[in-house]
Structure formats: structure tokens, C-alpha cells
Design a protein around this nucleic acid. Structure first.
Ligand SMILES: [Mn+2]
Ligand SMILES: [Mn+2]
Ligand SMILES: [Zn+2]
Ligand SMILES: [Zn+2]
Lengths: 176, 176
DNA sequence: TTCTCAATCTGCAATCCATGCGAATTAGCA
DNA sequence: TGCTAATTCGCATGGATTGCAGATTGAGAA
């Protein structure tokens, strides 16, 4: 199937609904607690690739007192059941992704935004140096500048050309 | 040029020698200390993608008393001058790579070994979902099993078939 | 060569992210 | 309704990296 077809789809691909996750948890002998249900809901259709801390912040609004420990616990459970992917974009904290399709990511080196990208032909890459390695998986991380940040940079450089003050930079960044 | 030509080459590509790095440091107004020279040497031609701790261990043998802080400092300096690449294979600690060629990596999910791979055609990938993003860089991380670990697994499974004990697993692993 | 001082080194504290642990609580079932 | 294993939660712990400041030193000046 052409990956492009996925864009604009009204469903969330193979992503399970909170109700389905409830089923899955019970089927695996795990209890379904209010905390877990809340997190099922927060992750469903979530495309921002949040960190545990970010989810904890959201969860805390709806359920004051929920612990960060429980957020980590539940996310780990979901991941070990294959309902969630752990993403590392090199920004320090692990990001969680309910999209379990075969896809990759772009990260904005300015604001840290992470988006899904679908890559065609990644399995046909000519790779030299494997030297016996049995490759089971490939993950591609693109990095660059999102449209919003590009606009911002543009605005700033124009302002700078007018001799105005420079705006402060945004987040922390590492790995060339 | 065909990447394959790089294999078995007698030089280290664009990698600078310790002497050249000394030049570069002085040219940038940085002092050349014994600690830095030691690290220049330890990194030159180093293909294992060591962590800071690993380098610290090596460095400590030749220069007892050198501090981990200095190792980090020097590696960071080298990286910010573009003489070193920071690699994140998701194993927790950043790995340092004197190979500044355009290349990618394979990591063995069993023993953690990291090897260079040269990928042809990565710039011709069909990527969907970029949605305005300006991509400046793509890094591909392959993961799988190295030949040594594959042999080990094979040996173990054969032993297991004979009813013997199973060997313990190796390192820590995360991210599917 | 000696002087001088900014750059560097080192040890330790602090930070961030994540996990271990154990007492209190609770979901799910009899 | 009551039982009990699973879960929650707060706190301690651990790994990786950076901040800080006093002691040390490379390298240009005299
Ligand atoms: Mn994703
Ligand atoms: Mn490399
Ligand atoms: Zn951005
Ligand atoms: Zn291996």
C-alpha cells in the first residue's frame, strides 16, 4: 500500500481504543485501574509523541494525585504488550508513541516537535559494512526545522536586519 | 565514489591525526594539554564508538588521575569543532565517533557492539509526512545481531536442546 | 628563562531521567 | 461482602551528564 493513503485517514490505523486496551489488559491478567484508563485515553490518537513527564502533567489535571511512577509503569506495560512504541529522538527523555505502524520520525531541532513520517523503500537501501550482522530493524530519524520555526527564524532575521534585539533560543539540543 | 572502496583503506578517511588536532586546537585558541593529547590518541582510528566512561577507563590506565570531567570536556570540544560525532544508539550513554564521514550505524541488540555502515541512496528515500519540514539530516540506526552473538545464540540453543542450563543475558536493552 | 594570567583540570554537587522498593490501597473474583 | 494478588505511590537509588570553584598549568610576553 502507498503510505500516502494514510494521510487524512479518519481512523488511527492499528491503534487500539481505550476500550480495546481494557480488553487486552484483562486478557493479559492485568487489572484495569482508573489511572490506566486515563492514560489509555490520553494516548489514544495522540500524535505529539509525549514524554512521560508531559503525560504526567496532562494526567494530573484530570486526576490530581496520580503519580509519575504510575505513568511510567503503565507506559512500560503498554510498550511490553506492543501497544506503544518507545521513541528516542536524542532529547533526553523517552517519547511514547501509540502509532505502532511501521514509520519513522522527524524532529525539529529548534522546538523539539516530533512528527511521523512514512518512508518508502527503506528496505531496499544498499548497506555496506554489515559484515555478517543480521539486521532486524531500521529506524530513521530525520532532523531539521519545522514550518513554524522556519517562519520564526525568518521573522527574527528580518528583525535583526532592522537592528532589533534577538529572541532567545528555545530548547536544549545535542547530537549534531 | 562507491562506499565499498572505504573498506580496508589504510587511512582513516577525513579523520585528523593527533598532530593535526593539536594544530586545530591551537588554531582555535585552545590549549593543548597532556590530557587532550592522550584523548586525541585514544580516539584516532578508534572504531568501537566508545562511551565517555569507556574512554575514561582507557585514559586512566595511561594517565592515572585524569578526571572523567576532563574526558567529557575534551570530547565535547572535539564535537563542537566537528572533529567528532556524537552517536546515540539508545543504550543510555552517548557514544563518540572520530569517523566524520557520512555514515550510519548498526547496533547489536545482544552485546551492544556498534559498527559503521555506509548507506547508498538514503537521500533518495520517498518520505511522506514531512509537511513543510526542512530536513537537514537523516540518521539511520540498524539493529540486529552481530555474528559473534548469533554464534553464541546458536551454541546456547544447541546446548538447550541437550537439556543444559541457559547462559545469562548480556547487557541492558530498551526501545523495541 | 621567567613571569603572568586566562584557560584548563579536577572533585564534588546538582540535575535529569528512569527504576527499585515496600507499605498502603484496590480491582476482580469467590 | 470478603479475600488476595496486583497496583499505586512516595521515596530512595542509580546512571549519565553538567555546573561550579579552587588549584594548576600552557603558552605568549618580557
Ligand atoms: Mn510516531
Ligand atoms: Mn561511526
Ligand atoms: Zn520547530
Ligand atoms: Zn553482539
Amino acid at each position: 500500500m502507498d503510505c500516502r493513503l494514510r494521510r487524512g485517514a479518519t481512523t488511527f490505523g492499528s491503534v487500539k481504543t481505550p476500550a480495546e486496551l481494557t480488553e487486552t489488559f484483562r486478557a493479559n491478567g492485568l487489572k484495569v485501574t482508573p489511572q490506566r484508563q486515563l492514560l489509555f485515553g490520553l494516548m489514544h490518537g495522540n500524535t505529539v509523541h509525549p514524554t512521560a513527564e508531559a503525560l504526567y502533567a496532562e494526567a494530573s489535571e484530570r486526576m490530581p494525585g496520580i503519580s509519575l511512577r504510575t505513568v511510567y509503569q503503565t507506559l512500560t506495560d503498554l510498550a511490553s504488550m506492543g501497544e506503544l512504541r518507545l521513541i528516542d529522538v536524542g532529547s533526553g527523555a523517552t517519547r511514547f508513541d501509540p502509532n505502532t505502524d511501521d514509520h519513522h520520525h522527524v524532529v525539529c531541532s529548534s522546538c523539539g516537535e516530533v512528527r511521523d513520517v512514512y518512508v518508502a523503500g527503506s528496505d531496499r537501501l544498499k548497506v555496506d559494512g554489515l559484515d555478517g550482522f543480521t539486521v532486524e530493524q531500521a529506524s530513521i530519524l530525520f532532523s531539521g526545522t519545522c514550518t513554524a520555526c522556519a517562519a520564526e527564524v525568518d521573522k527574527v532575521s528580518r528583525a535583526s536586519a532592522r537592528g532589533e534585539e534577538r529572541k532567545p533560543t528555545n530548547p536544549k539540543e545535542r547530537m549534531s
